[in-house]
Amino acid sequence: MKFGIVTFPGSNCDYDSYHAVADSLGLPAVYLWHKSTDLQGVDVVILPGGFSYGDYLRAGAIARFSPIMQEVATHARAGGPVLGICNGFQIACEAGLLPGALLRNANLQFVSDTVRIRVENADTMFTSRCEVGDVLRIPVAHGDGRFTADDNTLDRLEGEGRVVFRYVNEHGVPDAVANPNGSMRDIAGIISSEGNVLGLMPHPERAMEDLIGSADGRRIFESLLARVSA
């Protein structure tokens, strides 16, 4: 299975995503340049974190117009897996691959921390190696992570099992302190209606080894491997 990691101008977690795939999982990974229109035959596209185009205008707003994103959208429409992490989640929302928007954190401060997220749906290609209720410890680092949508959209997401991760405290329960950005209904990650595009604010690619604090992010990658290889 081959991973493609998109590099936009201002991406800064492309390198981390690359290492997560190539070093931690030992799988083939390539960088996909934003000006290119060639996905190089990758199976999974990662839209990495960072500040694409400096987050000017609005986080992710300009990246969606780059040439590579047209190819990513085609790949997604054909059912190809897309993992949007942090800024990549913002880009996926801006590109219409996922509903809702990510607004400035409620306390107006950038937040860098390790949070706990609870698996709400284990029946996705990104969480098949988890159980519902499992709590993963994953770093966050963002200024615009407050997931926001209208009530109908939120109800639909919940009803269709598309809320995949929620911020929780050390007891596995959502609360205002555990939610790092004021995200509606404590949502940390959602999935597309077809189940092939996952967007999440926490960084699973930063949680691949106990040495750097957590290896829980591997569960997401390993789920993907199991499902896509199957």
Binding site: D16, S112, D113, P139, H203
Partner: peptide, 11 residues
């Protein structure tokens, strides 16, 4: 330091 990204570059 909660306002500083301390984990990017995963090292």
């Amino acid at each position: 330091y909660r306002q500083y990204d301390s984990t990017v570059r995963t090292s």
